[in-house]
Design a protein around this nucleic acid. Structure first.
Length: 583
DNA sequence: GCCGTTTTCGGCCCGACTGTTTTCAGTCG
């Protein structure tokens, strides 16, 4: 799987071309190609093998031939040439906040600096301030930016960023004149990680242009307890840095322009560029403030539906706005009806104090019920995972009695189903024999060890589990932990095909750190006819709220209710687990 | 470099903020 390698090379080529002052459109082409390859969801090697590289959006003849060259020879001559032209240390200067390609070229060409350290020294010597367009102030900013490089934070998990945004917005809602306050940007699109937060506030007040109200909201924002540093503060836009290093941008606008503003600040950039092209075709110019006709008259949009409507499109849910075909789907009336959190009737993956959970069966059941579910599968770990007190066959049977008792206690309003999160062991076997699995309502199987095995080994383990007639769901299939652990080196195409054949569901695990399957895999799985289970993996009653992240990930993969098994009532689910060939 | 109801050339989104500037260039999203 060489998607990341191709993506990285194209991004690097874009950087170098920018420093060389190539056409901005050509540079953008490389960046877009880089992003599209990274979010492909299937191995680029396969597309290459099938001579289908040109089916990737933004990949034409030239880039396809470069990928082909990489696959055949292991290198891209044009990339090697570019790298030889611009020293790596010069390219690295692009990472400095406030420094773009033009300034990098300026520093390199006039000061002769070829590393960030050299550049810092030049700034300390005062040589930067004398450059055209630079001054004492920008020299200071440059040094501060270089300083920042060292303590830059990684992208933040969705599950951490979301509550942070919620808290900040809660405080802003109390400011006078604020009528709406929500997160925009990648957070609203529910990307698995976010690089910054974009907050959007609609405010109105007594003064005609709303400037005083906007100012007061900005002041409140810059004074929030989370703020470590104010980066910039204008009348429509302010940026701060939080104590944990996350940049947060706030925009304030009038309610009448909410639709265009929300649409614009939600992005993605690629989606917006495409949308604005469509506007141009209709003689309109789209900005965050309005749709403007050629004669200068404006169409104000208070809702996003109006924005899309004016462009002849239905509303496109934020999770789809990545320029991955959603606009064409919208034009053709083929947008998917995405699954919603309210559609989930059950959760097929939760734990209790019987293994490593923190609450009893009854407590977990009541928490699930409080989250709007009507059933949940008790899927505690099994004995091979000794560190979490995994269940032996005897304890598993004892647990079934406890589940029956809990169900009596719960009355008819909620139902616990008997299951287990069975280990797929390093040798490929499951840690319970078929006759034990056959006694369970739902069997979840998962990898927890041996994740670094060879592609052949680890893939064959998962395929074996999928083909076991008792196994209903594969939990967190790739085992990745975002920012901590790479996914196992699985042949995902083979996994999807086997799961589609056997009717085994693949989980979209809702833990913010997992989100596994990830969005691109969800989309590919659906294309191949795989059923999904959005699982909370809750170890505590509060864990069911993570389902929102799992649903968001499924939505980013274009999942509808028809693709998800836990939208079914318990009876239908049980029919499915006892399907032909299943236990 | 890509792409096509503007179709093989000539387009390619739009605006805020900042600093160094007397009208703009660079960066960012």
């Amino acid at each position: 799987m060489r998607n990341q390698e191709v993506s990285r090379i194209f991004a690097a080529m874009a950087d170098i071309l920018a420093i060389k002052s190539a056409s901005v459109h050509r540079i953008r082409t490389y960046r877009r190609a880089s992003e599209n390859v990274a979010s492909l969801g299937r191995p680029i090697d396969e597309l290459w093998g099938a001579d289908q590289l040109d089916t990737i959006p933004g990949i034409g003849k030239t880039l396809a031939s470069k990928i082909d060259e990489l696959m055949r020879t292991g290198r891209i001559e044009a990339y090697q040439k570019l790298k030889a032209e611009v020293p790596a240390g010069v390219v690295a200067m692009l990472q400095i906040p406030g420094v773009g390609a033009k300034r990098v070229a300026l520093f390199w060409n006039t000061l002769g600096v070829t590393t960030v350290d050299d550049l810092a020294q030049a700034a300390r010597d005062g040589r930067v301030a004398s450059l055209p367009g630079m001054g004492a102030r920008s020299q200071e900013e440059l040094l501060a930016g270089i300083e920042m490089l060292g303590r830059r934070t990684d992208r933040m998990l969705l599950g951490i960023a979301w509550p942070l945004a919620r808290d900040m917005l809660g405080a802003l809602r109390e400011a006078p004149g604020v009528v709406r306050a929500i997160p925009a940007g990648s957070l609203r699109r529910r990307r698995e990680t976010v690089g910054d937060l974009d907050l959007l506030v609609a405010a109105e007040g007594p003064d005609p242009d709303g400037a005083a109200i906007a100012r007061s909201v900005m002041d409140r924002f810059c004074g929030l307890p989370q703020v470590a540093e104010v980066l910039l503060s204008g009348i429509t836009k302010s940026s701060i840095r939080t104590h944990d290093g996350l940049q947060v941008d706030l925009r304030v606008l009038e309610p009448a322009r909410w639709g265009t503003a929300l649409q614009y600040f939600t992005g993605s950039q690629a989606h917006n560029i495409r949308l604005r092209s469509i506007a141009r075709e209709r003689g309109l110019s789209l900005s965050e403030y309005a749709l403007q006709r050629d004669d200068g008259s404006q169409i104000l949009c208070a809702t996003e539906e109006q924005v899309y409507g004016a462009l002849g499109l239905p509303y496109i849910p934020p999770e789809l706005r990545e320029d991955r075909g959603e606009i064409m789907a919208a034009q053709n009336g083929r947008l998917p009806q995405l699954v919603q959190i309210e559609d989930l009737l059950g959760d097929l993956h939760m734990h209790s104090t019987w293994s490593d959970g923190h609450q009893s069966l009854l407590e977990m059941a009541r928490a699930a019920q409080a989250h709007g579910l009507s059933y949940a599968v008790v899927a505690d770990h099994t004995w091979s995972l000794g560190v979490v007190r995994g269940l032996t066959a005897d304890r598993l049977r004892a647990q079934r009695h406890a589940i029956a008792e809990a169900n009596r206690e719960l009355g008819g309003g909620f139902r616990l189903l008997a299951g287990a999160e069975v280990e797929i062991r390093a040798d490929g076997s499951l840690d319970f024999p078929d006759e034990v699995l056959a006694e369970l309502d739902v069997v979840v199987a998962a990898l927890h060890s041996g994740l670094r095995q060879s592609r052949e080994q680890v893939t064959s383990r998962v395929l074996g589990a999928i083909r076991n007639p008792h196994v209903d769901i594969i939990a967190h299939p790739t085992g990745r932990l975002i920012g901590e652990r790479e996914a196992a080196d699985l042949d995902m195409e083979a996994v999807f095909q086997a799961a589609a054949e056997t009717g085994t569901a693949l989980e979209v695990n809702s833990w913010p750190k997992r989100l596994d399957l990830r969005d691109a895999h969800v989309r590919r799985a659906i294309e191949l006819g795989v059923m999904l289970s959005v699982g909370s993996d809750a170890h505590h009653g509060s864990g069911f709220s993570d389902l929102a992240y799992g649903v968001a990930t499924a939505r980013r993969g274009w999942a509808t209710v028809a693709d998800v098994v836990n939208v079914w009532p318990a009876e239908r689910l049980l029919e499915w687990t006892s399907r032909p060939g299943a236990s």
